[in-house]
């Protein structure tokens, strides 16, 4: 039983990383006032691009992850163009991008023959001698490099958002675009920057799933994780650190599913697979129950910016 817990907790960071990175990417873009539902689609783009880069270009997995980030941010320009420049309804545009990505990645993955091919991946680090510490060593000091990088990214994004001029402008555009506009901040430009930068992280989340975690490309392999990330953002009240804790929680939930079956506990497997989605809904209910209408939602979330109505 002790082994069960150590194995479980040691695998949780790997399942948590995609949630954490995707939620952080969404937070970045939603802080600029753009309601972003694209994560499910952009994660697929990242996953396909990463897997494709390893399989067809035979690049190092690290480079494949960078390609995944680039691919997702490229596709996010489409979303940015729709919602920032053309002011298309952000829900419709987000959904359209997700389904476009689902279709496109399915098509490319099949035509290029990348389905179900094994990928050589990043080895786990072994931070000796810390990794030799019993229990803690396995859980904290024998993860793959991206797990540690994710924590660094959280520090970085947090710093940029709250301690730089760029972050101040991005947040102002999300809270009150009219005020930002009057202060000489370009609303469009900062929203585009936030969307593209956030999508880099979402792409990395997707690339991580295919290249590092599962080591395969399968059509539709994100399986709703992007939607869970959207919910995580609400749970975290648009703040980075709570999103990381939330991601760890979901990482633990997802990591326990295969382990329960492996431990020989008889639970209907398909009902087990519902757990992450039901847990997400439970968390949303808890959020709604707890925070009696006070959210820290960016003031202008979901509203296209239209300068100065004249009365």
């Amino acid at each position: 039983m002790n082994d069960f817990f150590i194995n479980w907790l040691a695998s949780a960071p790997v399942t948590a990383v995609p949630y954490a990175l995707a939620a952080l990417g969404l937070i970045l873009s939603e802080r600029s006032g753009v309601l972003n539902l694209t994560a499910e689609g952009l994660m697929l783009v990242g996953a396909l691009a990463g897997a494709g880069a390893v399989l067809s270009l035979h690049v190092h997995p690290a480079l494949a992850l960078i390609i995944a980030m680039a691919a997702a941010s490229l596709v996010s320009l489409l979303f940015a163009g729709l919602v920032v420049v053309l002011r298309v309804n952000q829900v419709i545009a987000g959904l359209a991008v997700v389904f476009f990505c689902q279709g496109l990645t399915g098509l490319i993955g099949t035509v290029a023959g990348w389905q179900n091919k094994q990928i050589d991946s990043l080895p786990s680090l072994n931070i000796w001698p810390l990794s030799e510490i019993p229990v803690i060593g396995r859980i904290f000091f024998m993860q793959d490099p991206i797990v540690y990088l994710t924590i660094a990214i959280f520090f970085g994004v947090n710093y940029v958002l709250f301690r730089t001029m760029l972050g101040l402008r991005i947040r102002s555009v999300g809270e009150n675009p009219a005020a930002a506009d009057a202060a000489g901040v370009s609303v469009s430009l900062h929203r585009i920057i936030a969307i593209v930068a956030g999508s880099c992280l979402i792409g990395l989340a997707g690339g991580y799933i295919s290249v590092v975690s599962v080591k395969l490309w399968v059509t539709g392999m994100t399986g709703g994780r992007g939607w869970i990330a959207v919910a995580l953002v609400v749970f975290a009240r648009w703040a980075p650190w709570p999103a990381l804790w939330g991601a760890l929680l979901f990482g633990c939930i997802e990591a326990v599913i295969p382990r329960i079956a492996a431990a020989g506990i008889a639970v209907p497997q398909y009902l087990m697979l519902m757990t992450p989605y039901l847990a997400t809904i439970a968390v949303m209910v808890w959020v709604g129950y707890r925070q009696s209408a006070v959210t820290r939602e960016p003031g202008a979330l979901g509203q296209p910016h239209v300068r100065e109505e004249r009365r």
Binding site: A96, V97, V98, F99, F100, Q102, G103, L104, T105, G106, L107, T219, G220
Partner: peptide, 9 residues
């Protein structure tokens, strides 16, 4: 899924 892609376009 190609159908979805065309729908999205």
């Amino acid at each position: 899924t190609m159908v979805q892609m065309i729908e999205a376009i």
